[in-house]
């Protein structure tokens, strides 16, 4: 019996060692980047032979988990505040931070011809609910708040706001039409450069501070080749094509 246990342990150890050789990356990914990340990882795995395990969620949650020793190697956050904070606290590798995508905010409704190209629908007021991501929790929520402040509507619209705890939940509120429209990430509705459902207003860049989605290599993966290879791949032309297809912009190359 105990021999059997030892054998089992041996098999486990060998399996784990093999996986380590093949290179495995545990990636924490901002929820709004879900679809492009899956596509990029598929390509990366095919080309490199490494495997990437994806966890999707909010950057705030990932921050708490990383500080508590979560087994993540890289973080693709929804802004640059949390990667910066991790760097300051020594939880991320110096010099590894870069902006992998600039997020685009969109006002979106499932109904066609509901949202006009200039977002004037916001002023009409004949809607009961406007969904945004909670500005305390999500960068896209901050951008939505800044946009509404710029339109001098923030105070007046409070009674109509419903807040998702993440941009994913905000999307769900709008997609299920429980809110007539909402501020979401363009990447959630755009596929291959097109939006197929409903009507939308692409919020101009000068309405809010740029959503600089930053990636960072976490300290525990400092010497891990697979994690570094994944981040390098994220900067490649192939990844850029995919990222643009979802409506993100990329920072200009220096």
């Amino acid at each position: 019996m105990s021999l059997f246990k030892w054998n089992l342990l041996g098999v486990l150890l060998v399996t784990m060692a093999q996986e380590a050789n093949a290179g495995e990356v545990n990636a924490a990914i901002a929820a709004n980047f879900t679809a492009p990340a899956q596509q990029i990882v598929e390509l990366f795995q095919k080309e490199s032979g490494h495997t990437v395990k994806l966890s999707f969620g909010s950057s705030g949650k990932f921050y708490a988990q990383i500080k508590a020793g979560a087994p993540f190697d890289v973080l693709l956050a929804a802004d640059d505040a949390i990667p910066k904070r991790l760097l300051q606290e020594g939880a991320a590798v110096e010099g590894s931070r870069f902006v992998y995508a600039t997020g685009k905010l969109a006002l979106w409704s499932v109904q066609p011809d509901y949202v006009d190209e200039k977002g004037a629908v916001l002023n009409k007021g004949n809607y009961s609910k406007l969904a945004i991501a909670d500005p305390r929790l999500a960068p896209y929520g901050v951008a939505a708040k800044e946009t509404l402040e710029k339109l001098t509507m923030w105070n007046a619209i409070q009674g109509k706001l419903v807040k998702g705890e993440s941009i994913t939940q905000t999307y769900q509120f709008v997609a299920s039409e429980n809110a007539e429209m909402g501020f979401i990430a363009l990447s959630q509705i755009m596929r291959d450069g097109k939006v197929s459902v409903g009507s939308w207003w692409l919020v101009p860049e000068d309405m809010h501070k740029p959503i600089r989605q930053s990636a960072v290599l976490l300290s525990k993966a400092k010497d891990q080749a697979a994690a570094q290879a994944f981040l390098a791949f994220l900067k490649s032309q192939k990844a850029a094509m995919i990222i643009r297809g979802y409506g993100y912009e990329l920072p200009k190359k220096p």
Binding site: S58, G60, K61, L137, E165
Partner: peptide, 8 residues
Amino acid sequence: IYSHVEAM
């Protein structure tokens, strides 16, 4: 509580 934790 959840929001407070998420907002750090």
